Computed example of a mutant assay.
Amino acid sequence: MAHLLRDTDAMTITIGSPELINGQEGRRVLAAFYGELLGLRAFEPYGWLKLTREPPDTPLQLALDGDGWSDARPPRWPDPEYPQQLHLDLFVPDLDSADQRVRELGAARLADQDHFRIFADPAGHPFCLYPHPSGEARIGRLVIDCLSPRSLADFYAGLLGVPERTIDTVERVELDLADDELPNLAFQHAQFPATRWPDPAYPAQLHVDYRFPDGAEAARARAVRLGAIPMDGPVYADPAGHPFCL
C-alpha cells in the first residue's frame, strides 16, 4: 500500500440522505441503491446504516445518513449554485449494461460523455460510470471539486502519505492510493459556494472519515500542520472548506 491509512475501516464515505425519498426512509432507499449496484452488504453499528463488502472490518465503507444533507439545498448538477462538492466515479465492467441497471434501480442519466456517463442517484447526488476491466462494479475514485486542484492535492498527499500522481494538470489531479480496496482521490477545478458546516443552507453533500494506525491525535496534528481548520470534535475543514473527520 502507498498510503498511511489503516488496513481495516480506513475510509468511510458518508452520503447525505433526505428524510424521505418517494415516501420511504431516504437512507434505506440509498442503501438499497448502492448496495445492489456495488454488491455491498448493509449493517448497522451504533445506529449508523453502513454498506461494505464484508462487515464490519473492511477498508472501505459507505454510510447513509441525514448527516450532511439539506432538503433545502440538494445538488442540481451542473448548476454551481447547488454544487455537488464531491462525487463518486464508479468503475463498471460494461458501460451499457451498467447504464441500464442504474436506471432500473432509480438513477437518472444527466449526460453521456461517450467514454463515461453522468447520473444522479435517487437523492440527486451526481456520480459517474466509467468502463473498467475490473470484473465488478466498484468505487474507483472520490472526486473533490475545488478552485485549485494542485493545492488541495498537496494537502491530501501529505495527510494520506500519497505522493504518486496519475494525473497532474491545472484542471485535474489524481492521487494514486495503490490499494485495490480503496478509491483514488481526484481533484477537479470548479467554482461554487463552499460548504459552511454545520449550516444547513450550505450543506456538505458527502464527507469522509479517515482512520490511521498512528491514531487520531497524530492525524489531527498532521492535518492542522498541512492547513486544515479544526471545526468541532473530530470534524476538520480542508483548505477548500470541505469537512472531513479524523
Rank of each mutant, 00 (worst) to 15 (best):
T8G: 03
Y210S: 05
G135N: 09
P78R: 12
V102T: 02
R141H: 14
A120L: 09
P230A: 08
M11S: 00
D65M: 00
P93C: 04
A204E: 06
D209V: 05
V143I: 12
F127M: 06
A10S: 09
D209C: 05
G16H: 05
I229P: 04
R172C: 14
G135C: 10
E81S: 10
F244Q: 03
E164L: 15
P93I: 04
V92S: 02
Y236H: 07
L185C: 13
D209I: 06
L38E: 01
A228Q: 00
P133T: 07
P126L: 08
P18E: 12
D180E: 12
A201Q: 15
Q61T: 11
H115G: 02
I118C: 09
D79E: 14
P200S: 14
L110T: 10
L62K: 00
F244D: 03
F119T: 04
D199R: 14
E174D: 03
R222Q: 12
D7V: 05
L51K: 00
D209M: 03
D67G: 01
D199L: 12
L147I: 05
A221V: 09
A31F: 01
L60I: 06
P230W: 04
P183V: 05
P45Q: 11
S70K: 13
P243G: 02
P198Y: 09
P198G: 09
D99P: 04
G16N: 08
P126H: 08
T12V: 12
A178W: 09
R41Y: 02
T8D: 13
S97N: 12
H3R: 12
L86V: 08
G158D: 12
A42F: 04
D214H: 13
G140K: 07
L88E: 02
P78C: 10
A63P: 01
A2D: 14
D199I: 13
D180M: 00
L88F: 01
L51I: 04
G158A: 11
E19F: 00
A98D: 05
H189T: 14
L49M: 03
F43H: 10
P203L: 11
P93Y: 05
L185T: 13
H87I: 01
R211T: 03
V29G: 03
H207I: 02
D114F: 11
H189K: 15
L147G: 06
E25A: 05
H87Q: 02
D214P: 03
H87A: 02
S134M: 01
P163C: 10
R27Y: 05
F155T: 07
D89S: 06
W77E: 09
E104G: 09
E104T: 10
T52L: 01
P183T: 03
A2N: 15
D180K: 05
M231Y: 09
D199M: 12
A240E: 15
D99T: 06
P56D: 02
F119P: 03
D179N: 14
R222L: 12
T12L: 10
G68E: 00
L51S: 00
V143T: 11
A120G: 13
T52I: 04
L147T: 08
E25D: 06
H189Y: 11
A178G: 12
I15M: 04
F192I: 07
L185R: 11
E164I: 14
G140A: 07
T166D: 06
V224E: 14
